[in-house]
Design a binder for these strands. Sequence first.
DNA 1: CTGAATTAGTTTCATATGTAACTATTATGC
DNA 2: GCATAATAGTTACATATGAAACTAATTCAG
Lengths: 153, 153
Amino acid sequence: MPNALQALELEKFLPYRLSVLAQLVSESLHDLYTQPFGLSVTQWRVMAALGRFAPLSASDVGQRIVMDKVAVSRAVAGLMKRGLVERATDRSDRRRASLKLSARGRAMHAEIVPLALGYEARLYKVLAPDERRSFDALADRLIAHAQALREAT
Amino acid sequence: MPNALQALELEKFLPYRLSVLAQLVSESLHDLYTQPFGLSVTQWRVMAALGRFAPLSASDVGQRIVMDKVAVSRAVAGLMKRGLVERATDRSDRRRASLKLSARGRAMHAEIVPLALGYEARLYKVLAPDERRSFDALADRLIAHAQALREAT
DNA sequence: CTGAATTAGTTTCATATGTAACTATTATGC
DNA sequence: GCATAATAGTTACATATGAAACTAATTCAG
């Protein structure tokens, strides 16, 4: 047969399933911090980046968490308004502003991290330790490859 | 130590990595059909569902592709305007409308499917066949479990 | 040095998306 | 049978997001 009929079986199609999984996980996680802390997804991600990587500029944040600068800018504006993040203009390059969590921001971060890790732990429970390691490794390779394919275009 | 300091290492955090991977894949795929065919992501998903599962009601589509009814409604409206989808009111329950691809819709679907499968194949190339099977199986279990956790809340 | 090109970040506008309210139709309790 | 509830789908509003234009500061070529 020169060209067997190609059928797209959605339920087996990798991009589709990745989208469903990421969506489910993201929504569940969102529930953990949206009601009690009033954070949007992007705000939480920025807080997570700042909580982990000390002082960062807005574009550093964007690179870390794969978020465009507009989204970062908006999230930071919201976090500053609530006094969760502090900004200081860089003395040597006044375009830059280095960002870090305020005391309040650190306190909130410290409350949310265990919730996030708790959810991750519950999710991972369905996999045995070696399966978890295996999934992680394969996912990493897929990420790297997807990135390479994207740039190749 | 009663409660070791929990650090959130974003780059190892499963929800974060799933989000990055799904985002990368979705963007790449999007490039394949957005320019040449002028479809949005939701429109393409609806077409894919209809292409595979014959006549479906709008809510059937939503269940298949995990998309809420508002999004389905909007996507269908756009597809109908372009004559890619046909709608027929159900005689026995006039709230329902059964949807299917038109001839033009089927033709477009037939053009896009190989592109989508081609991308999937390129993506999968980074994994050996047994790794691919393994990843698929683990991902399926994660999906099922994430769904269960979500409902348990 | 000085003007063109870069870079950081914000604002604007157009589009996408989710929640809730609404219409129309069918099912259910009494 | 009739009022109430439930279901399919659309519309309206409010918010989120992305692309492009814009401001301000810095770098670089000559």
